[in-house]
Amino acid sequence: MPHDLPWSALFLAAAMLWPPCTRRWALAPLAVAWAWALAEGVADPVALAWPALLLGAALLARSQAGPAARAAGHALFVAVAVLLFAHLLPGFHNLRVIEPAPLSPGAVPFGMFLNLDKPLVAFWVVLAMAPPMAAASARLTLSAALLACGAAVAICLGLALALGVVQWAPKWPPSGGIWLINNALLVTLAEEALFRGYVQERLSQRWRSRAWGGWAALAVAAALFGLAHFAGGWQWMLLAGLAGAAYGLAYRYGGLSAAVLAHLGLNVAHFGLFTYPMRAAL
């Protein structure tokens, strides 16, 4: 279908953010995705205002004009990022690829859109702020990801079972393929770029002279990640906060790649083995 074309280009653009040799060219397929989206009505012309604002935020945040200009750039980015994450900015007609339906008995209905707005945050953070993408070696990155993922699965899904938020429900529905691609290339990247690559990294730099700085930055980012899940109730905020702490550890020792892999691993375990996204009656 024509509407598939913007998302294929967007997936490619997100994948190109990872290798250093292709990162600088990632904006090319992103521009193609946006051109197709505009041509097919997935995005309206007004939506162009938001990447333009992000460009302005990057120029201010990286400028030599002084701390006031840089602070204004960061404030502008945070405001736009929050609105993009909440899908509150006009001009987007994101494609629904999974119609709402329970994935297992007793689950709340789950549906999914492919989003053109939220991934912009990941591109801004990776290209404008250049957070550490990996540890000094692939082995350290993978070790940090696996340890954090294992801890998150054991603690978060174990606690979710104890709280009655989920139950054991092994499955892999036909929609699992597009769910996995979207989660791997767009969802986890955008969320980890914002909360770990931006919030945790910026606070770590600000508090780097303090012995507690790195840990405080991790805790603040994890708490904000938990609060961002307020729609699921206190149980979901608690679980997300604990997961965010695990992702923060992965980021601290393995870079953004480790955080994304840990996040993806927990999401896959949750999707494939337990009630997803949660039980209908708590």
Rank of each mutant, 00 (worst) to 15 (best):
L83G: 07
P109L: 03
V80E: 02
E99R: 15
I98V: 15
A75K: 05
A130N: 13
G73W: 00
L84E: 11
P132S: 08
K118R: 08
A49N: 04
F92H: 13
P132V: 12
A68E: 15
A57G: 07
L53W: 09
L55I: 08
L59R: 10
G111E: 10
P109C: 00
P90Y: 12
G66E: 11
H74K: 06
F77V: 02
P102E: 02
S63Y: 10
A52V: 10
L103S: 05
P100T: 14
A134W: 09
A52H: 03
L60T: 00
V108E: 03
L88P: 05
D117P: 00
L89I: 03
F110Y: 13
L83M: 15
A65G: 15
L89V: 13
P131N: 07
A122M: 01
A79F: 11
W124E: 10
W124R: 04
A61W: 08
A134D: 08
A72H: 00
F77N: 01
L83Q: 13
A101G: 06
G106F: 06
A79D: 05
F123L: 06
L103E: 06
M133D: 02
L76K: 03
A58C: 11
L103G: 05
L60P: 04
I98S: 10
W124K: 01
L48W: 10
A75D: 02
S63Q: 12
H74A: 05
L84Q: 05
N94V: 07
R96G: 13
V80A: 02
R96P: 09
P132I: 08
V125N: 04
Q64S: 12
L54S: 00
A49G: 11
S104G: 15
L116V: 03
G91D: 08
L114G: 00
L59G: 08
A69N: 09
M112D: 03
L54Y: 03
L53S: 05
V97H: 08
V121S: 06
A58P: 01
P51S: 07
F92P: 07
N94L: 04
P105G: 04
M129H: 14
A57Q: 01
G111V: 10
A81E: 06
L116K: 01
S104C: 12
A86I: 01
D117Y: 00
L83V: 02
A101Q: 14
A122Q: 09
L116F: 02
M112E: 08
P67I: 05
K118V: 00
G111M: 02
V82E: 06
